[in-house]
Computed example of a mutant assay.
Amino acid sequence: MVVDVRRNRVGEVMASAGGRLALRPPAGGREWEAFPCEVRPATASDELRVKVTEVNDRGRRERGMA
């Protein structure tokens, strides 16, 4: 897991080609590209932020369906 510091997004590194990294949101979704100099390793706090966001999003979707 890394943080794209330019976009303030956490992502998983899926591939590296042409001097760029292909990143994907941890819960899935559309990939984006970043240069290696624009990312840093994700901290425990970064990973927790992603998990909390996923739980909140899931709760909103479930309430919308009720």
Rank of each mutant, 00 (worst) to 15 (best):
M1L: 08
V2G: 01
V2T: 07
V2P: 03
V2I: 05
V2M: 02
D4R: 04
D4N: 01
D4C: 03
R6P: 08
R6H: 12
R6Q: 15
R7T: 08
R7M: 03
N8A: 15
N8M: 05
N8V: 09
N8H: 13
N8I: 05
R9P: 03
V10C: 13
G11I: 02
E12T: 12
V13D: 07
V13W: 07
V13N: 14
M14H: 07
A15W: 03
S16R: 15
A17Q: 14
A17S: 15
G18T: 05
G18P: 12
G19T: 08
G19P: 09
R20S: 11
R20W: 05
L21W: 05
L21R: 13
L21G: 08
L23H: 05
R24K: 13
R24T: 07
P25D: 09
P25S: 06
P26I: 00
G28R: 01
G28V: 04
G28K: 04
G29F: 10
G29I: 04
R30G: 08
E31D: 06
E31V: 12
E31L: 10
W32C: 02
W32G: 08
W32P: 02
W32Y: 08
F35I: 00
F35M: 04
P36T: 05
P36W: 01
P36G: 10
C37K: 08
C37N: 09
P41V: 10
P41T: 10
P41N: 14
A42T: 01
A42D: 02
A42K: 05
T43D: 03
T43A: 02
T43V: 11
T43I: 01
A44F: 11
S45Y: 08
D46L: 07
D46A: 10
E47A: 14
E47Q: 10
R49H: 09
V50H: 03
K51L: 13
K51P: 02
K51T: 12
V52N: 06
T53G: 14
V55A: 14
V55L: 14
D57T: 11
D57G: 14
D57L: 13
R58I: 10
G59E: 04
G59R: 10
G59S: 05
R60A: 11
R61T: 11
G64I: 00
M65T: 02
A66S: 14
A66R: 14
A66L: 13
A66D: 13
A66V: 07
